[in-house]
Design a protein around this nucleic acid. Structure first.
Length: 944
RNA sequence: GCUCGAGUGGCGGAAUUGGUAGACGCGCUGGAUUCAAAAUCCAGUUCUUUCGGGAGUGUGGGUUCGAUUCCCACCUCGAGUACCA
């Protein structure tokens, strides 16, 4: 009978759905295994063959673990809040919930066709109120917590009030806003309610503060740092400008050190760890105060700088402040006022992108003010310059031109002195930045000290004289946690009579996203939720009511911002453990059983976004005792991207004539993307289909070669706009889901990017056909296997394959395990093996890839064991043990011939046998070898 | 610039702790079957050769009896990051 993949796959997919074959239980005697994929955003375009790559890998591993006797949790869901649905809504008026629902249907249908073993009973959707009510709850927990540096954990904010009441904030060692003043108990007790609330906000882990944000005017929203790439928005590529705004932020910086330290405990790819380490950007150095000497200043004032090279302090010849630095206006002398103000204005106008594309231009202005060097007491000029960033360190630097290239360039540009404080180093051309080889000179008490020693000595002195102290700085910033958008989780906050934020208590969540007439911002620039008619909080009845009822005594306005895209994905992995729990995000029992993700597969593009934020939330939930693990994913694998093979037709410039690829050499042509579905495997274009494709090609002329139009090919990212998308549905139609799954794995190593080539699929497809053939299935669908004893050779093939595939899957080397199966089928075909003893275990083993075929056959032959519960075949080493081995015989490391030698021969016996062989004698031609190296079981090498 | 990662046939890619380089698949060549095609099966396929061999894993060195594998220098490509003081 023919291999009818469609019938087989349909039948078993239905069977699994009806029998809930892959439903995981929260109670089991088996050890647990949690295999997770990064859940997709359900876009309108549906899946292409690149999307399921990681899902296939995790699915194989999940099935493998089930075979090995684990209770496996392998869920899937949707990250369903997001921008595309909202933009579609703005254009069409269609509610995002509706398009999202439709897209999810398409996704589900496509995923089902590929035959994944997902436990769909645990599906989550971040846009479901049942789900986001818990996202909102995490927000309120963060709001009601602060970070205690002594305990090194998050604690309830309520703890702070008695401390403030009795001692003020002086003894408190907690993370807070940089500008938090010191207060005494008396201060606190004299605070009004509003002042108390404002003060507490400086400690909350999610807080409201005026901050400089990345504002994207085109998208009408703020963006987090990781959403800005090269000064433009990651989505859409629109310009981004800096703007001061009142914003919700998350105090992720409180966790900077722990996020760094705990990387050591998790088995994640080194590149991801490196990226996160870089992003957190820890640097150790010192804070140093420079006294400002300005007649204009009445009170004593100083500039604080952060430096990683306090050892070079005697090389300071000027200081530079960021143009935005608060001291700038205070210290600027009247003579310089005009120039400084013009410069500040010009900098503010420039977008981040302009500032970056212009790195090489040195610019700045002298403020007219001077500072006093803390040791030499010399006066040094204070400049402003845009190479100093307001957001890092203190927004001011002590410039050491001989030791820092940027300071050097600045000094050269403005003709400032470049004192050399390095021993035996020439700094006339360039700065000397190599601190490992630095020996300090001309530096008073630091002279002749190497870098490390000088670093320690100067810090000791700075601390003694109270002009500086050791400081660790992080590049990581607090994450902006609000978007001026509609399609996101509402922030569960209302504003009380003092206009201070108050969270909505857990029992009244979810705060459901309101209906709005328009998804655009309001006319006065408020976020889209400003269009909602019913968007006020009635504190008497704890429910949402009409805006008309706002009286600021019991009914208050609700927050108009929504949460950013990464909110739901920061904790969803815990939800799968107990997806239908209405009271809590997951029960204590479920959390205690599943604990954490054992294998997490997804793309590396989330390194500084989702993969960092989710670690932060998990640590917070851990601190507050809600989860059992401080890291949620033990092992992470980044699957590579599957690239598309774009096709191009070549149109001569200024004409509508297309030349076949071989004819374009002398012509000026413009390559045009052609839909890959018009091209066959030999790169031949279906001209008729192409003409019908677009109006402007209707009358196109084609110059052919050998009566064919041949297209050009190029590997690019798979995308709709490049017309190189391959739909998995088409592959399933023609070759079946098993072929698709096998082929995606066979393409190459999981973690590597690789181009998709539909022509290659014939290899795995014919492998499946050959496999099917082995079972000699007749027209009635019966399997005709022999119950006689199989040959030793066939048993060896089986057990060799078991051993290899077991090892390969355990190492996530899926491509080589597919090869092993192919070899096995080729061997068994050649051996004419049709023995049940060999072929049934082979199918169980193969089922991670082709369960449908396997189950089909098990059923037909009267076996009813579900693949999910069938035992993994036991590997029997005895079939692999051989009595003899083909030894390569080498002369000076070069292989000359082989000899079959018994494996139980001693070293001496092997040497004797080899030396006596006539081929050895021929090679030696009478000479005596210097040495004979015998590695039992491996090789014999004769040196001489 | 800095930090990682990778360079193997026409192509995707294999190769345990250093031990017969090119597994497996695509493509290609020849053959069988067929009126023919598709499908299937068989044989071949790194380059070179005077048919004994010789060369060969980006380049140049080194360690070793023996290097795709280890070490040093360089070249190329990819990814991340970028005035971070």
């Amino acid at each position: 009978m023919k291999y009818l993949h469609k019938d087989i796959e349909e039948k078993w997919q239905k069977y699994w759905a009806v029998n809930q074959t892959f439903k995981a239980s929260n109670t089991s005697d088996k050890p647990k295994f949690y295999a997770l994929d990064m859940f997709p955003y359900p876009s309108g375009a549906g899946l292409h063959v690149g999307h399921p790559l990681g899902y296939i890998a995790s699915d194989i591993y999940a099935r493998y673990k089930r075979h090995k006797g684990f209770n496996v949790l392998h869920p899937q869901g949707y990250d369903s809040f997001g921008l595309p649905a909202e933009q579609y809504a703005i254009q069409t008026g269609q509610h995002p919930a509706k398009t999202t629902e439709e897209n999810i249907k398409t996704y589900r249908r496509q995923l089902d066709r590929i035959g994944f073993s997902f436990d769909w009973s645990r599906e989550v959707r971040t846009s479901n109120p049942d789900f986001y009510k818990h996202t909102q709850w995490v927000f309120t927990e963060l709001f009601n917590a602060y970070y205690c540096k002594d305990a090194n954990q998050a604690r309830p904010i309520s703890e702070l009030i008695p401390v403030f009441e009795t001692e003020g904030n002086l003894p408190l060692n907690a993370v807070c806003d940089e500008d938090t003043p010191q207060i005494t108990a008396a201060d606190w007790n004299h605070f009004s309610d509003k002042e108390k609330q404002e003060f507490l906000l400086k400690y909350r882990l999610t807080y409201l503060k005026e901050t400089t944000v990345n504002w994207c005017p085109k998208l009408g929203t703020v963006l987090a740092n990781d959403e800005v790439v090269n000064g433009v928005s990651e989505r859409g590529g629109y310009p981004v400008v800096q703007k001061k705004m009142m914003q919700w932020s998350m105090r992720i910086t409180a966790y900077a050190q722990r996020l760094l330290d705990d990387l050591q405990d998790i088995d994640w790819p080194q590149p991801i760890k490196d990226i996160q380490t870089n992003w957190i950007g820890r640097s150790e150095g010192a804070m140093v105060s420079f006294l400002v000497k300005s007649e204009k200043l009445k009170e004593k004032s100083s500039v604080e700088v952060f430096t990683t090279r306090p050892d070079t302090i005697f090389g300071v010849s000027f200081m530079t402040l960021a143009p935005e630095h608060e001291l700038v206006s205070k210290i600027t002398t009247p003579e310089q006022k005009e120039a400084v103000e013009a410069y500040v204005k010009a900098t503010a106008k420039r977008t981040e992108r302009e500032r970056m594309s212009d790195v090489k231009t040195v610019s700045g202005v002298f403020t007219g003010a001077y500072a006093e060097h803390p040791f030499t007491k010399e006066l040094i000029p204070i400049y402003i310059g845009d190479y100093v960033l307001a957001g890092y360190g203190t927004g001011a630097v002590m410039a050491v031109p001989c030791g820092d290239q940027r300071d050097y360039d600045f000094a050269k540009h403005f003709g400032l002195p470049i004192p050399n404080i390095f021993k035996a180093v020439d700094v006339s051309e360039t700065a000397f930045e190599d601190k490992g080889n630095a020996v300090i000179a001309n530096s008073d008490f630091l002279t002749d000290l190497p870098y490390k020693k000088a670093f320690k000595t100067v810090l000791y002195e700075l601390e003694k004289q109270k002009i500086g102290y050791t400081k660790t700085n992080y590049r990581l910033r607090d994450a902006i946690f609000a978007r001026q958008r509609y399609w996101g989780e509402p922030i569960p906050v209302f504003y009380d009579e003092n206009s201070m934020p108050q969270t909505i208590a857990k029992e009244y969540l979810p705060l459901i996203l309101p209906e709005v007439a328009k998804y655009l911002p309001t006319e006065d620039g408020q976020p889209p939720l400003g269009n909602a008619k019913n968007w006020a909080w009635d504190t008497a009845n704890n429910k949402v009511v009409s805006n008309n009822l706002i009286d600021n005594t019991t009914v208050f306005p609700l927050e108009l911002n929504t949460m950013p895209g990464w909110a739901g994905s920061s904790w969803y992995f815990n939800r799968y453990m107990d997806a239908h729990n209405n009271d809590e995000f997951a029960s204590k029992e479920a959390l205690a059983y599943w604990q954490d993700v054992d294998l997490y597969i997804g793309g590396s593009e989330h390194a500084t976004g989702h993969l960092l934020y989710s670690r932060f939330w998990q640590k917070f939930l851990f601190d507050r005792g809600f989860v059992t693990k401080k890291e949620y994913a033990k092992k992470l694998i980044n699957q590579g991207m599957i690239l598309g093979e774009s096709a191009f037709a070549y149109r001569e410039e200024g004409t509508n004539t297309f030349y076949s690829k071989g004819l374009i050499t002398a012509k000026k042509v413009q390559p045009i993307h052609v839909d890959v579905s018009f091209v066959n495997t030999s790169n031949e274009l279906n001209v008729a289909a192409f003409k019908n494709w677009r109006e402007d090609f209707k009358d196109a002329k084609f110059v052919l070669e050998d009566a064919k139009y041949i297209v050009g090919r190029e590997v690019e990212k798979m995308s709709k706009s490049k017309y190189n998308v391959v739909n998995p549905d088409d592959i399933c139609d023609e070759y079946g889901a098993d072929s698709l799954r096998l082929f995606e794995m066979f393409l190459g190593p999981l973690e590597q990017s690789k181009p998709w080539k539909t022509s290659g699929i014939s290899g795995v497809y014919s492998f499946l056909k050959k496999l099917w053939k082995l079972y000699q299935i007749d027209e009635q669908g019966n399997v005709n296997l022999s119950d006689e004893e199989p040959s030793k050779e066939s048993m060896k093939t089986l057990h060799k394959t078991i051993k290899k595939v077991d090892e390969d899957i355990a190492n996530f080397s899926f491509n080589t395990s597919v090869s092993s199966f192919m070899i096995a089928v080729n061997e068994l075909t050649q051996q004419k093996c049709n023995h049940r003893t060999v072929l049934e275990p082979l199918l169980v083993l193969l089922s991670p890839y082709a369960p449908h075929t396997a189950e089909e056959l098990w059923q037909k032959t009267g076996h009813t064991a579900s693949i999910a519960t069938a035992p993994f075949p036991v590997f029997d080493a005895s079939y692999l043990i051989e009595s003899s081995k083909t030894y390569p015989i080498s002369f000076n490391g070069k292989m000359r011939f082989t000899m079959d030698l018994s494996l139980d021969l001693s070293k001496e016996a092997i040497e004797k046998a080899v030396m006596e062989d006539e081929r050895t004698q021929k090679q030696l031609a009478g000479r005596t070898p210097k040495k004979v190296i015998v590695v039992p079981g491996k090789i014999v090498n004769i040196v001489g």
